[in-house]
């Protein structure tokens, strides 16, 4: 923890200013009110694809209409039972690539209702509660997440002034391929005089 700011300069300046009478005098201006009770909401944004699938039919606004998972899985449980591996997944899940450690489908999905999750405790949870499932293995990440040290946020640091939106695990880590994707970086700085490049020199 840094000590509250109180440098020698802050202490001596007023005295010296007083000595140098004639220097403009500062106008006292009150500080703004302190933060109040944290009444704001922390909402976790869950992406739509967590429990629905885009179809080829588009709505009036041009976006594809989404079909909820249970539309198929609840109606024909036997037909949509859990396959043995990703390669065996039928339409509309064909071609699904899984790269998530040594996990099998049943490690996460409920074998009866693959649109639901099965926790280690045996409890079955809806897809939207996937974070509970993730937390079973990724405990440190979950702990960090709960303290704002993982996953980022949008909105207010001060919950007395407004709400905060947190990312869901799956927004950054696709459940079947959770490694964070590499991104194209934005262009380098456009300095008036660019620095000499020398990355290669030191490898």
């Amino acid at each position: 923890m840094p000590r509250p700011y109180r440098s020698t300069h802050a202490r001596t300046t007023p005295i010296l200013l007083a000595l140098l009478a004639g220097c403009g005098s500062d106008v006292e201006r009150p500080l703004a009110d302190p933060p109040g009770e944290p009444t704001g909401q922390v909402r976790i944004s869950a992406p739509a694809w967590l429990d629905s699938l885009a179809t080829e039919v588009t709505g009036t606004d041009g976006t594809p209409l989404r079909l909820r998972c249970e539309s198929c899985h609840a109606l024909s449980p036997s037909g949509a039972a859990l396959p043995a591996s990703a390669e065996e997944a039928g339409a509309p899940h064909t071609g699904l690539e899984v790269e998530h450690g040594t996990l099998a489908c049943a490690s996460c999905h409920d074998s009866e209702r693959p649109d639901r999750l099965r926790l280690a405790s045996g409890h079955v949870a809806p897809m939207r509660e996937a974070m509970l499932l993730c937390a079973q293995c990724h405990g440190t990440q979950h702990r960090d997440y709960q303290h704002g040290a993982h996953g980022g946020m949008q909105g207010y640091w001060d919950l007395s002034r407004g709400d905060r939106v947190r990312n869901h695990c799956v927004e950054c880590h696709a459940p079947h391929r959770p490694a964070y994707p590499r991104l194209r970086p934005l262009p380098p700085p456009h300095d008036r005089f660019p620095p000499v490049r020398h990355e290669g020199d030191h490898g």
Binding site: T13, L16, L20, G22, C23
Partner: peptide
Amino acid sequence: MPFIGRFHWPI
């Protein structure tokens, strides 16, 4: 300028 501006002396 001392006395006219804000002269950050002696820091």
